[in-house]
Nucleic acid binder design. Structure first.
Length: 328
DNA sequence: TTTGAATAGCACACCACCCG
DNA sequence: CGGGTGGTGTGCTATTCAAA
């Protein structure tokens, strides 16, 4: 039992399904998750397709009469909410503490780079509280509470820091396809608050340079200090009312993945075409997983890659070299 | 050195739910 | 019911890289 439990479970489940040919490397990523872990989820964003396309009824274990009392309107039950995140695992208890409850985000793309993140900055950890802020509503936490039942009653439920995993595919539809479950640590190398104020600082610097304006160093440092207060995504991203303006400008926060943060880029040639990988930040915890995973999947290969900024990551790889014909 | 393919960066277009 | 905010993938183009 460790904090990577949800990622490991999905990895093992997907490999089982690949081997049994219930899914292929080209199946919808949603199908990967639902067919492998459907019953372990506390939130599914697209409940409509889960049922219609993959025959999974998200509410199968829930008393439908109670749902109304819990504020889940009928039309929401099998809709595609298009909220963040795509999936949330149920929490587990380990002694007094929560474990699991991870977020799972899907990124599918035709080309070689990871599809852009819109309005959400990928991180290693997020709490339900943060999810509610991002969505500016509490649909996700309301549904998660229902699914987690008794375990959701703890005081710290909303604040519990959950791991973020990203199920990423590049080159969809081609034999170059790669699929990986990526630890959020692969993307988060500086805190996101820092990211925001540095953006504004960069914009300012670029203007000063372009207009050849010289500003005393001391003043610049003061400005930097002032800009460091820009940390709140919701304040940045809301559309703004500008006096006399008949349009309201809106700064949408988006993030493009730099090649060094893309495990499928050529910085990491070990992640081969046609493979399915679980990529976790190296720690004593992940080292312990090696035995466990090898027991379930004898064919798995285990090796390290070095992230330029966040150091060693352990890769559990399935399907190297032979899968092209076998799993497509 | 030229040229063609791949990539990175940005923009577009559209859709869904909440809330007043 | 519509305005506000959030989600998704695809398309275009300039740049970079590699092959001829």
């Amino acid at each position: 039992m460790n904090e990577f439990i949800d990622g490991v479970q999905l990895f093992v489940g997907v490999v089982d399904n690949l081997v049994a040919k219930r899914i292929s490397l080209q199946s919808a990523l949603e199908e990967f998750v639902i067919k492998s872990c459907g019953s372990d989820l506390a939130y599914i964003d697209n409940r409509r397709d889960a049922k219609k396309e993959y025959g999974f009824d998200f509410w199968h274990s829930v008393d439908m009469n109670k749902l109304k009392d819990q504020g889940i309107a009928k039309r929401l039950r099998y809709s595609e909410s298009q909220q963040f995140p795509d999936f949330l695992f149920k929490v587990k208890k380990f002694g007094e503490n929560y474990i699991g409850g991870s977020l799972m985000e899907l990124k599918d793309s035709k080309g070689g780079n990871i599809a852009s993140f819109n309005s959400t900055i990928p991180t290693k950890l997020k709490s339900l509280e943060e999810i509610d802020v991002i969505n500016s509503n509490n649909l996700v936490s309301r549904i998660a509470r229902i699914m987690d039942g008794k375990l959701a009653l703890d005081e710290g439920y909303l604040k519990f820091e959950r791991r973020c995993f990203y199920l990423v595919r590049t080159h969809r539809g081609s034999k170059k396809a790669k699929v990986s479950i990526v630890d959020g640590s692969f993307f988060e190398t500086v805190p996101k608050e820092h990211l925001f104020n540095q953006m504004f600082l960069n914009v300012l610097r670029a203007h000063l340079k372009k207009k050849e304006i010289k500003i005393p160093q001391a003043t610049l440092e003061k400005v930097e200090e002032i800009l460091s207060h820009i940390t709140d995504q919701t304040l940045i991203a809301s559309s703004q009312i500008i006096e006399k303006a008949s349009v309201r400008p809106r700064l949408r926060i988006m993030a493009e993945v730099h090649p060094e943060g893309n495990p499928h880029s050529k910085s990491y040639p070990e992640i081969t075409e046609g493979s399915f990988n679980l990529i976790l930040e190296s720690s004593p915890q992940t080292r312990k997983l090696e035995e466990e995973i090898c027991e379930h999947i004898p064919k798995v290969e285990v090796f390290s890659i070095i992230h330029k900024r966040n150091g060693e990551h352990i890769v559990f790889q399935f399907g190297k070299g032979m899968q092209l014909t076998e799993y497509m």
